[in-house]
Design a protein around this nucleic acid. Structure first.
Lengths: 334, 334
DNA sequence: ATGAAAGCGCTAACAT
DNA sequence: ATGTTAGCGCTTTCAT
């Protein structure tokens, strides 16, 4: 079944069929009726590849998201999808795995789908100008910025929280409760990831509060996995290093760490206070409920689309939005 | 940058470029070198839409998955991806939301991507023959079968656990510990979903163990959400109905329920024993650790691909695999 | 081993 | 309002 068949069966030309299918004006009610009858009868579905090829442009906005497994993105992607729809565009989403190059995927999508713009959800923070130059539509980085990269801020947009300040604030919470021996559970600190940025916030807080840095209090894993967090935390606890509080750079890691603490017979929050960053749904259901600094996920998604659509429609300038986090008190603070 | 430009720049014809790009034999080393030089220099990326259009067939296997938010699929999808790759095929994955018709999406993908076969991850269990007839390549239902539908078993393949028997076995665990007042937390029971099938297992178990059914012990929500489970469970607990054990049809729902129990000052497992089905990663990190019947996720993914590839390559018959679950003891049983 | 040219299924001028 | 036709960027016979 192709558009040609439909045209023949309906007794009209392919262009009329195309017009009907795309709700173009200037088609008679009669034609619409005839075409739709055949379309429905044969359950005809147009070929998207052909359509994308034939079109010179589209109303597609691409969304590239890294890591299907990250529960943190769930709400954001939903918000993005809704907002794209409401803005009259069509969302084309592409999942990529951790080892894929999002900028390459972006370049592919841009051509295949004739994108008008692009939202990068998660991702590295250190693209170079050459890498970025391969993509020719406006794009906005969602939940991350380019702090350690060397892009000009007029080359891209971003919508995210201030990861450094949020980490600072997390440590501050701990400090205000009287904690001085504050361990940190983090991931890589040299790859421009949020882990690195949040670590910077941790360090600045220590400095501000006149707490000397102590390498023994740094627990590092090489992922953001709950299982890795659990195992590494367990190993670290075996060392018997003295500490009274733990700052985890993500909720997910905190959940792994809390089990390790439980295994080690450390009561949270009596023996150890715990705080994290993200505010994913699952961490509301831990026992005790995790105290964390919540990202405004829905707001982030909506704003990312807003910014992008503004750039597309009004050729507005690139923007960099920093959204505030909110503290979820939880039960792991003391 | 199109294949034409590359051809011109490399001083060869488009067909030669196409051959090089697709690793066809019968291309001179010299041609390969020339073409690749240009391709790399300009970072040329072929247009997938055009490629799909031009090709009469492909090595694409489609994977349609419902609900990005379901952590249960994470491991399965990874296994599927690996196995498809190893089998020499290419995975094209498509996310769909709960309200989209997967069979329609399947029909689209089949044409757009020239699929060889299709894997449906999650989904309803009650397709009709007409619905299925719109898709023309072999497909396998992954994690669900068609128990309440009216398909012939030679129209599709399936790889899943025996949901009914697993639910039975869950209740059996509770019964063996001496429980008679066994509440059940479930979702819809009239839509052919796993909820319905697992509910059937629950009922059969009660019957087998001579426990009368009691509507008061049925807690129903209209999703598989952790938040909905929490709220509905809380509301139910307010009623003060007497019970000593809880069977949740999914881990996720169990996590919500456990918080409700905690809020109600019910100690798990001392006051209430809890068991569920699925075995997602997060439920290993609850406090106490959830007792559950684990699905062999990786195995499910691998087998789904195996079955499909066998059908594609060898025109083998459709198969229906039932894989065993394993009990994770956890800490919520007593 | 390589090139020319005919599609693949659709959209979008351009004509009428 | 409708039809004709030339692409869109690629693959794939069919020649050579």
């Amino acid at each position: 079944m192709t558009i040609k068949d439909i045209a023949r069966l309906a007794g009209v030309s392919v262009s009329t069929v195309s017009r009907v299918l795309n709700n173009h004006p200037d088609v008679s009610q009669d034609a619409v009726k005839k075409v739709m009858a055949i379309v429905n009868k044969y359950n005809y579905i147009p070929n998207t590849s052909a359509r994308n090829l034939g079109m010179s442009s589209s109303d597609n906005i691409g969304v590239i998201m890294r890591g299907i497994s990250n529960p943190f993105y769930t709400k954001i992607i939903t918000a993005i999808g809704d907002k794209i729809e409401k803005s009259g565009y069509t969302m084309v989403m592409q999942q990529i795995s951790t080892d894929e190059d999002e900028l390459r995927v972006a370049a592919m999508m841009e051509k295949d789908k004739r994108l008008q713009g692009l939202i990068l959800l998660g991702g590295h923070l250190n693209y170079t100008k050459e890498q970025v130059s391969s993509i020719g539509v406006p794009f906005v980085c969602c939940t991350f910025s380019n702090e350690y990269g060397n892009l000009n801020s007029d080359q891209y947009s971003s919508v995210c929280i201030d990861d450094e300040a949020t980490a600072f604030s997390a440590v501050e919470q701990l400090y205000k409760k009287g904690h001085k021996k504050i361990a940190v559970l983090l991931s890589a600190v040299d790859d421009g990831s949020v882990s690195q940025v949040r670590y910077a916030g941790y360090k600045r807080a220590l400095k501000d509060f006149n707490i000397p840095e102590d390498d023994n209090l740094i627990i590092q894993i090489h992922s953001f996995n709950i299982a890795d967090a659990y195992h590494e935390m367990s190993k670290w606890l075996d060392k018997g290093i003295d500490f009274s509080a733990l700052f985890c750079i993500s909720d997910n890691m905190a959940m792994g760490a809390m089990k390790a603490l439980r295994d080690a017979k450390k009561i949270v929050p009596d023996d150890v206070a715990v705080i994290a960053i993200d505010g994913i749904e699952a961490s509301e259901y831990t026992n005790p409920v995790l105290s964390t600094l919540c990202q405004p996920m829905e707001h982030i998604g909506i704003k990312a689309v807003d910014v992008l659509v503004d750039i597309i429609n009004n050729e507005g300038p690139h923007q960099h939005l920093t959204l505030p986090t909110t503290l979820r008190e939880g039960e792991t603070l003391r």
